[in-house]
Design a protein around this nucleic acid. Structure first.
Lengths: 194, 194
DNA sequence: AATAAAAGTTAATCTAGATTAACTTTATTT
DNA sequence: AAATAAAGTTAATCTAGATTAACTTTTATT
């Protein structure tokens, strides 16, 4: 598998020497998951964080009534994991499942801790990545409270046009916190508005 | 003002030499804000991240109808800022206002960038802090979708008993994404359940 | 190509929580 | 201590979005 997309991504945040790049690549594992396969299951301990080379995943919580609540979608050049489980090595709250067959780069907890000590710049990399993810998460909370479902869907479509096209509608409804029936209604309203 | 609570907090994450501690303290500013005073205003560029020595703040978004949506409360031993504005030095989406008179330690963007280069361990500190905040934020999104308002309030009360006691009820309603009238109803239902 | 399963649509009915409004209690200010 | 403002309560009515159910379209399987 090809590590170029990953190195290109890293280079947007930090500069690595070629020795550092080599060390980094020696500590990762490439792995391919098939469509519908689980990368992480609720209750298991999340052993790795995963950078997506190709494919698409959903991270979701299955509630006591068996309902799926999608926290995020991840595609090329983004990460997927249950970060809470990963950092504390405790049981995962979330499932991560492939929506498409996906190629990943995996960092085990041990390997990443080791890398942090050998390449302190990686602390900076992950600090910056998580900062951005946190900011996006806070903004999403506010949007969920201050906007109605139609406005949220419109923002979703313009912010993540690729995901909107690749992912089944009932999953987008789950991500937006509404039912598939209501999203269907919203979509027909939006069409009539034009 | 007393820097001990701050150093104690830092030491939970990383070990600093006494020279590093000294350098760190040389780059911070102590500041006192009165009750109701704004630390950050929506639209301004957020110049500092703030560690709370004493007091309580709310971070909120004011929507187009003039409604306040509270993203978070912060008390002693926690941080407050508009992180999105801070990291990109672009206009803030949120306001941060004191609910009580508050004593803060402030890191300006310049000073913190300087500290990161001189004490790389601080990258680790802030990576870990933001990781935790991000995990909590993701879990909150899921709770907002999978639980009703009464369950959310019960979790809030047990997770943040100190905040529940210190903060006016209408602000807690805003944090939970419901009206003050509905929170009032929930509270009387909870009393009758016992 | 036929069949079954998965995904999406439409419409009727229902409900958690919003809105409005009148009221009571608690803090502040003078 | 009185006056005023801020915070909290209660109840009636309303609405965004849920639920249920029957249906259509698309995709996968034999």
């Amino acid at each position: 598998m090809n590590s170029k997309p990953f190195l290109d991504y890293i280079n947007k945040f930090i500069d690595l020497t070629s020795e550092e790049e080599e060390l980094l690549l020696s500590k990762i594992v490439f792995r391919r998951y098939l469509k519908n396969q689980y990368i992480i299951q609720q209750g298991d301990i999340c052993r790795s964080i995963n950078f997506i080379i190709s494919g698409c995943t959903k991270t979701f919580y299955m509630d006591l009534e068996g309902q799926e609540h999608i926290v995020m979608f991840s595609i090329e050049d983004w990460w997927t994991s249950d970060l809470g489980s990963y950092i504390t090595q405790s049981p995962a709250d979330f499932n991560v499942q492939c929506i498409e067959t996906s190629e990943l780069i995996q960092f085990t907890h041990e390997n990443l801790e080791d890398l942090y000590s050998k390449i302190p710049k990686l602390e900076r990399l992950f600090r910056k990545i998580v900062e951005r993810a946190y900011v996006a998460s806070q903004k999403r909370i506010i949007r969920n409270f201050s906007l109605d479902a139609k406005q949220r869907y419109k923002i979703f479509k313009t912010t993540y046009p690729k995901i909107d096209q690749r992912v089944p509608q009932y999953m987008i409804a789950s991500y937006l916190g509404i039912t598939k029936e209501f999203l269907s209604k919203i979509k027909s309203q939006i069409i009539q508005e034009q």
